[in-house]
Amino acid sequence: MTSPATFRDQTNWSNGYYELAIEVGSCDDARIQAVLSALWSAADVHGCFGRTDREPEEQDAVPCTVGSLAEFGHLHGQVRLPTGQLVVCGCVAIRGGDESSDWLDLYVPVGALDKAGLAYGDGQPFFRLDVIDEWLAAVGTETFKSASFSLGVIGFEVSGCTDASTLAGQLPRTRDIGYLLPQGDALRYGAANT
């Protein structure tokens, strides 16, 4: 079995994404760049690459920028999970255009999580990894210290499942996913509780 940190093994990139999706709060390149830089640093991502068909040592690094996201679609790297395992990870921007705000998603593919031996679900009604939820919440909280944002959501493919205006500053009482909701200058974490 190959390592969950191997780029070239496409099974590492399979079966969807477990993510921290951040609603940036505007469609401004400078804002999304600030969040991207803070997010990459907070997660301590190793490297920044445009391709997954070559190992990091077989390709040149690309700048961790909005321009690279536009050019490659996704940025890729490796991140150390709280369990100590190094796995592949990525980031994608979902640009909202004039009508809504941009989203920036940091994700670990489920294929890599499987190879890292992380069990998900654990009999819960929704796909969930509590240890990864807590880690992504900490990453989001650290990101917010350097680059504020409107909302963060944590879970399996959660980007765009709600938005800050829908929540109107209130955490849902029952939560299938995790929420990072700004309250003044602080960020409140509401863990999934269903």
Rank of each mutant, 00 (worst) to 15 (best):
R95F: 10
I94N: 03
A70G: 15
S100T: 07
D176I: 08
D28T: 12
E71W: 09
A43S: 10
G90E: 01
H46A: 14
L75Y: 06
L181Q: 09
S146K: 15
D122Y: 06
D163M: 05
W135G: 03
S14G: 12
Y17F: 09
A93F: 02
E57P: 05
C161K: 07
G117L: 05
L106P: 01
D176A: 13
G184Y: 10
E23L: 11
D185V: 09
L69M: 14
C64L: 12
D114N: 08
A70D: 14
R31M: 08
A5G: 11
G84I: 01
Q78M: 10
R54C: 15
S101K: 00
G84D: 13
R51Y: 10
I177V: 11
A138Y: 00
E55D: 11
L151N: 03
S14K: 08
E134I: 09
G160D: 05
D102F: 02
N193L: 07
S150Y: 06
A42R: 02
A5H: 05
Q59N: 10
A61G: 12
R8S: 15
V66F: 09
R128W: 03
G111L: 11
K145R: 14
A191E: 05
Q170F: 07
S146N: 14
V108K: 02
F149W: 06
V131Y: 04
C161T: 14
V131I: 13
G152E: 03
F149Q: 02
D98W: 07
D53Q: 11
Y17P: 02
T65E: 12
D185I: 06
R173K: 14
S3C: 15
Y179K: 02
C27T: 10
Q170E: 13
T174N: 13
S37D: 10
L129P: 01
D185A: 12
D9E: 13
D28Q: 11
V24G: 00
K145S: 11
R175E: 07
E134T: 13
S14D: 11
D28S: 08
F7H: 09
V92R: 03
V110N: 02
F127Y: 08
A21W: 00
L36H: 03
A61D: 13
D122A: 10
S26G: 09
A112P: 00
D98C: 06
H76Q: 12
S146M: 09
L20Q: 04
S165E: 14
L106R: 01
D163C: 10
M1T: 15
E23V: 07
C91P: 00
D102A: 03
D53K: 12
D130F: 08
W13D: 07
A34G: 04
S159I: 00
D163A: 06
A137M: 01
T174G: 12
S41C: 11
I177A: 00
N12K: 06
L187V: 06
V139T: 05
V62N: 07
V87G: 02
G169T: 10
T162D: 01
L36G: 00
F49T: 05
A42S: 12
A192F: 06
L106H: 04
R51Q: 13
Q10D: 11
G47C: 11
N15P: 04
A61T: 14
E55Q: 13
G123H: 04
A147R: 02
G184K: 11
V79T: 03
D102K: 04
V108N: 02
L36C: 06
E55L: 14
E23C: 11
E134G: 05
P4D: 09
G123F: 04
Y189W: 14
D163Y: 05
Q170V: 09
